[in-house]
């Protein structure tokens, strides 16, 4: 644990001149008796890609929802660039944090372009009156929004599908579109909830480059992901959440080498676990059985059933 804290402190020292883009301190979320997130601290600095990993049910998405105001944290506070965020999703987005969802939540029956335009909502001000009166200001703002939206579609490579319905896009493109929609609100911090879930390795690589390109625009990124190779390639810093608590935080190599992380994912070997000797013994016994009654054994004694 000491090792861990030093690494985080190092990174903090490097960037102390500016306040962290995201500073969550002591965030706790309780649902009745269940504590889904327990006093988690996390900082994200400008130009950083931070990963958040953890086994299923560790509270990663709950933590995300606390950050973006979908949940009001029971304890703790979240601040963005030094100001404490109000617990309302639209105000959080207005402040400069945009997000995507674990299960894609596009506006399925709107076109690709309209989806991105909706993302521009907080950065434009035209209300009902200006829409009804259609003054020059309205046209200008509308044209500017269209231009920015098309730029973003070009950025993710979907400009040729601007008029398609979002629901008719292939899965990978829907994921990309969700990112473009989030980027449309000109965020300072982008939260990605499992951006490569269900993608093939090639698509994952594309997403990786996309996230690097987003970082290069000066947007800090916080990613939840299960794909370890992806996360360790991508991130400058990784935090591991287990059962609602932050277990480790540090550079990818540090987290990768931490046996507690491995244990959290794969479980610890218990006391009477079969060693190499026992395994060999069982194998030999199975082989012997197999030679005596080759035909009948396969169904009655399956090897998976035998080894604990």
């Amino acid at each position: 644990m000491n090792d861990m804290t030093t690494t985080t402190e190092n990174t903090v020292e490097n960037t102390t001149e500016t306040p962290a883009v995201l500073d969550a301190s002591g965030v706790t979320m309780r649902f009745g008796g269940l504590t889904a997130v327990r006093s988690v601290d996390l900082k994200v600095h400008a130009g950083e890609i931070v990963g958040l990993i953890g086994p299923n049910g560790a509270g990663k998405t709950t933590f995300f929802n606390c950050l973006t105001g979908l949940y009001v944290p029971t304890e703790g506070k979240v601040s963005y660039k030094g100001t404490v965020l109000p617990p309302k999703p639209h105000l959080v987005t207005q402040a400069g944090i945009a997000r995507t969802f674990q299960n894609i939540r596009l506006f399925a029956n709107m076109t690709v372009l309209e989806n991105v335009l909706v993302g521009r909502h907080t950065r434009t001000k035209e209300g009902l009156w200006s829409a009804l009166l259609r003054g020059p200001g309205f046209k200008k703002a509308e044209a500017a929004s269209h231009k920015r939206a098309m730029e973003l579609l070009e950025f993710i490579g979907l400009e040729h599908k601007a008029d398609h319905l979002a629901r008719n896009l292939p899965y990978g493109e829907q994921r990309k579109l969700e990112i473009a929609r989030a980027l449309a609100s000109d965020p300072g911090l982008l939260l990605l909830d499992e951006p490569t879930a269900g993608m093939n390795p090639q698509e994952t690589r594309v997403t990786e480059e996309l996230i690097f390109a987003i970082r290069d625009q000066g947007i800090a990124v916080l990613v939840i992901e299960h794909d370890m190779r992806f996360i360790f390639n991508l991130c400058d810093r990784v935090a591991c959440l287990v059962q609602g608590e932050k277990l480790v935080e540090g550079t990818p190599s540090v987290v990768q080498g931490d046996e507690r992380v491995v244990a959290a994912y794969l479980g610890t070997p218990f006391e009477g676990a079969p060693g190499a000797e026992e395994a060999a013994e069982v194998e030999a016994a199975e082989e012997a059985q197999g030679t005596t009654s080759k035909t009948s054994t396969t169904s009655t004694t399956s090897p998976e059933g035998e080894t604990p």
Binding site: L70, P89, F101, F107, N109
Partner: peptide, 14 residues
Amino acid sequence: VAIREDETAATAMG
């Protein structure tokens, strides 16, 4: 229309 399609996502878009 965004609210009609998915209110949670719409509020998350600001």
